[in-house]
Simulated scan of single mutants.
Amino acid sequence: MSKGRLPGLAWGSATLAVCLVAGLLLGTTRGVSDGDELRVGDSPRLSDLVRAAQAQADDLAATRDDLSERVAQLQARAATTDSDVAAVLDDLSALEDPAGLTGRRGPGVTVTLTDAPRNADGRYPSDARPDDLVVHQQDVQSVLNALWTGGAEAMAMQDQRIVATSAPRCIGNTLLLHGRTYSPPYVVTALGDPGRLEAALAAEPGITVYKQYATRFGLGYTQQTGDDLSVPAYTGGASAR
């Protein structure tokens, strides 16, 4: 009889242990979540997080612009009474254009990249993968590199100046530049000799590959020259991203 009851005692002990562990886990979960559900149907989506980060970046940019204006006013006042300050400000002013801190106008080239549109039936090509239908970071970088190689004197992407420390990044089907997000089309404007710029674009291997995908899957690529293009001044911090 004792041998026949041992399995029953073992199962009973195991069941009790499982119940204790389950109760401990439930209690811990409730304590961590403070009584709220850990998984809810309206969990923040990535797009919501991006919009929230964008709003915060815009607020910080407004604060930065206000502080920059105050600093400029204080410097101007100091320069009127202190010749050393005036001399330093003159030296800094001479560096503003090379650093991209002033707007520029002149001849150049504009390149526009866009994602592939849907077919007339609302579908994408059947032989296309999702990655085949969107502009990638390497596509943007190929355009920027080619334009610098072609002797671009100043460059902008979307509504922002591109400087030496700029690092455009593609996240999904959006572009992150200097803390702001953009959706296609992506527009790059470069000032310089249009002939040299176009020759550099034609010689860039990455652009050649992109154009092949554009022909096959409908990605957009347009390239135009202009006699009076403009790029804005850089307004970001010392470490652009």
Rank of each mutant, 00 (worst) to 15 (best):
V163N: 06
Y234E: 03
Y210C: 08
A99V: 00
A203F: 00
T110A: 13
D159V: 00
V18C: 15
R129A: 09
R70G: 09
A199N: 09
S43Q: 10
D59Y: 11
D34Q: 15
L175N: 06
F217C: 10
T80Q: 07
E96D: 09
R5Y: 12
D84E: 11
G226C: 05
T63M: 11
P168G: 04
Y221N: 10
A78W: 00
A154D: 02
N119M: 12
P7C: 06
S93N: 12
T208E: 04
P232Q: 00
L16V: 14
Y210N: 11
T215I: 06
H178S: 11
P194S: 05
D193E: 15
V50T: 11
T114G: 10
S126D: 13
A233L: 02
L229Y: 02
A116M: 07
R180A: 12
T15V: 08
G151E: 05
Q138S: 10
A22P: 04
R129W: 08
D90I: 08
T29L: 15
N119I: 01
G237R: 02
T102R: 07
R118L: 07
T189C: 06
R70N: 12
P44T: 12
R216H: 08
A116Q: 06
D159A: 05
F217L: 12
D131H: 12
A78K: 00
R104D: 07
T80A: 13
V85S: 01
A240S: 07
R196V: 04
A53M: 15
S183L: 14
S142Y: 05
D228Q: 05
T235H: 09
Q223S: 13
N119D: 14
V50C: 09
L20A: 15
V188H: 03
S239Q: 09
D227E: 13
Q158S: 05
P185Y: 01
F217H: 10
R241A: 15
A52R: 11
R241C: 06
A120F: 02
A78M: 04
S93V: 06
R104M: 05
N145Q: 05
G226F: 00
H136G: 14
